[in-house]
Design a protein around this nucleic acid. Structure first.
Lengths: 159, 159
DNA sequence: CTTCCACTGCGCAGTCTGCGCAGTGAGGTC
DNA sequence: GACCTCACTGCGCAGACTGCGCAGTGGAAG
């Protein structure tokens, strides 16, 4: 059995089967994959405990929540107070992802909005945060590939 | 009951409860939320059928799969063959997200890699795709806020 | 050869599921 | 006011699944 926080080929096959049918029971998974029920059970528990599986809410579509617009903002921060600036950004629920990045800017954030007016207000709100020096916005015109881990799972399952 | 592809306050409360305990049964959810089992059942089925809940594999951590590195690439494409170029990118499993964006570049992609050498090879492979004109890479130095929809769910649940 | 450990197969008691059905109450229409 | 619609509720049943323990098997490592 692999480490609690990693995934081997059998784990990947279990996760792929779950991707095909998220409601599948452990028993049906074991039948589909041709392995013992206890094995599926033990591995799923290990992956859940080990942090391989993240928050359930990742499966929720922002569009369904009423936020069909996505944008990416690159921000340059005042390094002196970058900590407080980041903290202030955490209080904005529309910021759904934040990365410290290399390059011209310091952070890249992904935001969602109800409409273009909402996005306008949102960007102004972010620019008004103390320590945000510059920003560059890229609106997602089309989500051409919604977050997919399946392709990686297929690679892992083939090992 | 809301439309199949949207979410109201009660839906949001159900999803939040599931975020707290992804293994919770419908029965325990109904007890926790103080609503009837059938209501939870009907709403979860509606959300599943309506596309509110997306692929299970979204919950898998790329790090656990062996891809601890994340980067964002902005690409400028040759518009004449942009279709084929995008298609070629779909064949690269490490590309986990792709958006058509406004601004200087045409697409923004999110990629994951095993290590910096892997990322190097990956960016070269992407640049070698026919129709990719220019690129700009921003490596994620730290995921300061992993994708979170919870904050939005809390807003929706408060309505 | 022995040890270790993942995987297997079996069984049990308890729980949950999916479904149907009927009742209630709020909101809207005529 | 009468009526209708529809979401939510409460109940019950047959069937399936869960979590768990336990013992056996086989391959890899020392």
């Amino acid at each position: 059995m692999p480490a609690p926080n990693s995934v081997d080929a059998l784990d990947a096959r279990i996760l792929l089967a779950l991707d095909d049918d998220p409601e599948a029971s452990i028993l049906s998974l074991s039948r589909t994959l041709g392995i013992a029920r206890n094995t599926v059970h033990a591995r799923l528990r290990r992956m859940t405990d080990g942090g391989v599986l993240r928050a359930f809410s990742r499966r929720v579509s922002p569009t369904a929540l009423g936020y069909p617009l996505t944008a990416f903002l690159s921000l340059a921060l005042n390094q002196r107070i970058a900590g407080e600036t980041r903290q202030a950004m955490l209080d904005i629920p529309e910021i759904v992802e934040m990365h410290a990045i290399s390059g011209d800017h310091d952070v890249l954030i992904k935001v969602v909005a109800r409409d273009t007016g909402d996005l306008h207000r949102l960007t102004h709100r972010i620019l008004a945060i103390d320590g945000v020096l510059r920003s560059s916005t890229a609106i997602s015109l089309e989500e051409q590939l919604p977050t997919r881990l399946r392709a990686l799972l297929e690679v892992a399952a083939a090992d």
